[in-house]
Design a protein around this nucleic acid. Sequence first.
DNA 1: CTGTTAGCGCTTTCAA
DNA 2: TTGAAAGCGCTAACAG
Lengths: 335, 335
Amino acid sequence: MNMRAIAQQAGVSSATVSRVINGSPLVKEETAQRVREILERVNFIPNPVATTLKYGRSKTYGLIVPDISNPFFSEFLVEFEDLLAETDYEVLLTNVQSSSKLVKSVRRMLMRQVDGAVFMASEYDTHDVEPLFLHKIPLVTIDRRSVQAGCSDVAIDFEGGYQQAVQHLRELGHKRLGYIGGTEALYTSRVRAEAFRMAVVNSGLCYYPNLVREGDYRVVGGERAIVSLFQETPRPTAILTANDLTAFGAIRGLHNMGLSVPGDVSLVGLDDVLLADVLQPPLTTIRIPRRQMAEACLKALNHTRENVERLGLRYCVPAELIVRESTARVTESTH
Amino acid sequence: MNMRAIAQQAGVSSATVSRVINGSPLVKEETAQRVREILERVNFIPNPVATTLKYGRSKTYGLIVPDISNPFFSEFLVEFEDLLAETDYEVLLTNVQSSSKLVKSVRRMLMRQVDGAVFMASEYDTHDVEPLFLHKIPLVTIDRRSVQAGCSDVAIDFEGGYQQAVQHLRELGHKRLGYIGGTEALYTSRVRAEAFRMAVVNSGLCYYPNLVREGDYRVVGGERAIVSLFQETPRPTAILTANDLTAFGAIRGLHNMGLSVPGDVSLVGLDDVLLADVLQPPLTTIRIPRRQMAEACLKALNHTRENVERLGLRYCVPAELIVRESTARVTESTH
DNA sequence: CTGTTAGCGCTTTCAA
DNA sequence: TTGAAAGCGCTAACAG
């Protein structure tokens, strides 16, 4: 069933049917009415593939994530998909666990004629996404903190988030703060690490470089790091992490060492994934608002879609400390 | 850059270029060589949209899930996407939290000309997916346990899984087993509940209907159910659940009631999501093999793609008990 | 072995 | 206010 068939039924041309469907004001209301009736009756489903072929517009946005089984990304995807569905856009999702998958992923985006892409897998060389640039595909990066023509950025206010967390810990009497970051090769990891350092210094506390460890944004990295961290003396009394999975790993590591949270050490995560308040203890964490991020990405994409030569937008989403039960007043034993 | 352009460069026709790209044996090796060289040199990216328009084949499979932020589904998606990427297929993902979103989701699948769809959101009326049938789209349902022309089913061996779990608990001395299921309206929930009942009976234990509660496959449902369940006397000494999130909720509920797992009650989950061994205590659970499920879905899809009139395939993926630390020998206090 | 050609369904000029 | 027609890029049928 296509527009020509509808047109025949209505005794008009397919051009008119197209106009009716797209809400053109040029069609006489009477004609439009008749066409709409038939459209309804046969439950017409238009074929956007034809439009994509003709105009290169696919109503599809690419989303490149490093690991969709990380709750932060899947929770982001929920919001992103939901927003896109409202306007009949689709998500072309690629999960890139390796650099070679990224190269293929970019190729797939190009083949499918995406109208833009969100690049959340900044652990990989941005060199690999260059083909998207060359083909004038509007891009949004997350937390790369620089923009250019056709490329926007959505930053996360780690600085504000860590500041709140450090302040909270200071009020609980903590003075020796540790930090488990992400993969150091990653720019966003360095941004987070530096935001932690600044928060400590700004709060008038002492920054101990020996209480900082590298993680990998996953559970294992957090677990490994905490073990190493607890070989330092004196030990930290509280630890901040680069994301919630890292904090989960730290909790497990501490548990295996016979230590408890927050009894022996306070712990702060980052993301506020859905399970953050399900683990024991419920995790004090810095919430990154997924919905707002998705909205910012979409706005940025729409902005540059109109004109790719245009300088990308710069957004910054706020972070908010959520106090639960993994942080507590410093005690004798941790002191 | 299209095939005609390549053809000109190579001094052949676009048909020949097409043949080379698709590996037709009809092209003289010498010609093919020349074309391939140019293809390489200009890094040609074919436009599959044209093929989709011409033949209605999109190299896209739809995936309808009720909640992609549920780790089980996102972990399934990782596998499914990974398998599809190997053959340049794409996933059209829709997250359907409501029946109205399902209707729209089905429409989107139809518009985008999916070559098939996996329907994992069986909480909704299958009536809503009927348009897919009418348009002859190969379907795969999960655990509906019936097939028909063009519609395959991938079942999960809950029976075997629960049997192993009950056996394990019986060996630990448990006799009064409770169960927290899924939404009762759902067929798959009834299958799970019945599988639990049979496992209990087959193990020579007594089945207590008053120790069975409804959940919602989410944390809150598990939490609510456990509270209600613990008003029964005598209490169950061990509890099985319909999925891991339910078990997580149960742990939280128990914790809030001042009870511990497995000290006061043993607990068995189902799914084995990545975080199952991160929570305290690490969850004894029944693993559903995601990779195998994804493979079965794909095989089924490929099977019916050739001929939609063909009866769908019937797969059953095994379930395996993973013993961790949320189950223990029954003690005086729980006895 | 290779080229010519038609046509998938849509939208948008241009003409009436 | 409407219609005719072109053309997006590809592939398969057919002709040579």
